Computed example of a mutant assay.
Amino acid sequence: MTPSLDKKAEQHPLFQKVEKVRRRPAKVRDTTVTLAHGSGGKAMRDLIDDIFVKTFDNPILSQLEDQASFNLAELATLGDRLAFTTDSYVVDPIFFPGSNIGELAINGTVNDLAVSGAKPLYLSCGFILEEGLPIETLREIVKSMKIAADNAGVKIVTGDTKVVHRGCADKLFINTAGVGVIRSGINISAQNLQPGDAILVNGYLGDHGTAILIARGELALETTIESDCQPLNDLIDKIIEICPKVRALRDATRGGVATVLNEFAMSSEVGIRLFEPELPLREEVQGVCEILGLDPLYLANEGKLVLVVPKEYAETVLEAMKSHSAGENSHIVGEVIASPPGVVLLQTAFGTERIVDMLVGDQLPRIC
């Protein structure tokens, strides 16, 4: 029988040589990111396969479609509503004490899902790379993202990569979006606060903002403080298991605890009173704030919850939080009051009170 044209083509030496090249494991041979890595050609495919697909490897991502698809029936077994969020990360510097931009991107999006009462499941990642970024720097950040995703129990299932000319970005920016499923019967909202409710936080405040400030090297200050960047979904699971009537949850990132509590107070039209002696602050953070004239209540955090629960649950929830590694230094820091509505008050150690208003401007830009 005469071989088909396809069979003849497959036997051609040039065809076999091309196929051998195609089967060769993708490997980025450049030492820095070039514009070719964003061109859509072989250099871009090698970058994606070698750094992203190989590291984030999972059955959904490995299909290499333009989107990730999920089984709706399986999602429905976890809850009755979807939670969807997105965030972009432009932190400067991209490496800082205790973490880096990649780990921050994963944990930040996981936490944004978790504070709604959702179980975080899937993430997307979009990378804006500056021409000249060292490939090993990118590889290190991507590996840290994989570790962070595994620790949080989520999968990175789709993404995108763009390269811009040198000087048009600052090394790299990352966008992450996340999908989770909210448990049935859970209703967590900033509009739920009622007078008498207790306000808790899960540890020291202002660590991330202070770590970034020192890492920038613009000040002659030295400290061992590290960012508090961590996933909070496991801690939140434990809280909800003990107290399904959680009123409100928020991770205190940009604008810090003060901004979160002002948003709560305005949304629920109630007042909030904080107790200054109960606020967990490291001496180093207090010292940096005193030197620079900053208020630690406005400093960013990347692993801290602000939690509001009915008063009768407060001590039980506090005990449970302290038993978790992400909440060992938890405190009850305040209470919800009827008036003045929309106002946050701080009761000082001297018994006086002052208003803690919304942050005007930005104490520290590019903090996340």
Results as ranks from 00 to 15, higher is better:
Lys8Ile: 10
Leu14Arg: 09
Gln16Cys: 00
Arg22Ala: 09
Arg22Tyr: 05
Arg22Phe: 02
Arg29Ala: 12
Thr31His: 10
Ala36Arg: 14
Ser39Asp: 15
Lys42Gly: 00
Lys54Val: 02
Ile60Cys: 10
Gln63Asn: 00
Leu78Ile: 09
Phe84Val: 11
Thr86Lys: 14
Asp92Thr: 12
Pro97Val: 05
Gly98Glu: 09
Ser99Lys: 13
Gly102Ile: 10
Ala105Pro: 07
Val110Phe: 01
Val110Lys: 01
Ser116Val: 08
Gly117Glu: 08
Ala118Asn: 07
Val142Met: 02
Val142His: 00
Asn151Val: 02
Ile156Gln: 10
Val157Phe: 00
Lys162Ala: 09
Arg166Asn: 01
Thr176Val: 10
Gly180Glu: 04
Gly180Val: 09
Ile182Lys: 08
Gly185Cys: 14
Ile186Tyr: 07
Ser189Gln: 03
Ala190Pro: 12
Leu193Ser: 08
Asp197Tyr: 10
Tyr204Glu: 10
Leu205Asp: 02
Thr210Ala: 11
Ile212Thr: 07
Ile214Asp: 02
Leu219Pro: 04
Ala220Cys: 06
Glu222Asp: 13
Thr223Lys: 07
Thr224Gly: 06
Ile225Tyr: 02
Asp237Ile: 04
Asp237Pro: 06
Asp237His: 03
Ile239Gln: 01
Ile242Lys: 14
Pro244His: 15
Ala248Arg: 05
Ala248Tyr: 10
Leu261Gln: 04
Gly271Val: 10
Ile272His: 12
Glu276Pro: 07
Gly287Ala: 14
Ile291His: 12
Gly293Arg: 09
Leu294Ile: 03
Asn301Glu: 03
Val306Arg: 06
Val309Thr: 05
Glu315Ser: 11
Met321Ala: 15
Ala326Ser: 14
Ala326Asp: 05
Gly327Arg: 03
Ile332Gln: 14
Ile337Phe: 13
Pro341Thr: 13
Val344Lys: 07
Gly351Ser: 06
Gly351Pro: 01
Val356His: 05
Asp357Lys: 05
Met358Cys: 06
Val360Ala: 15
Cys368Phe: 14
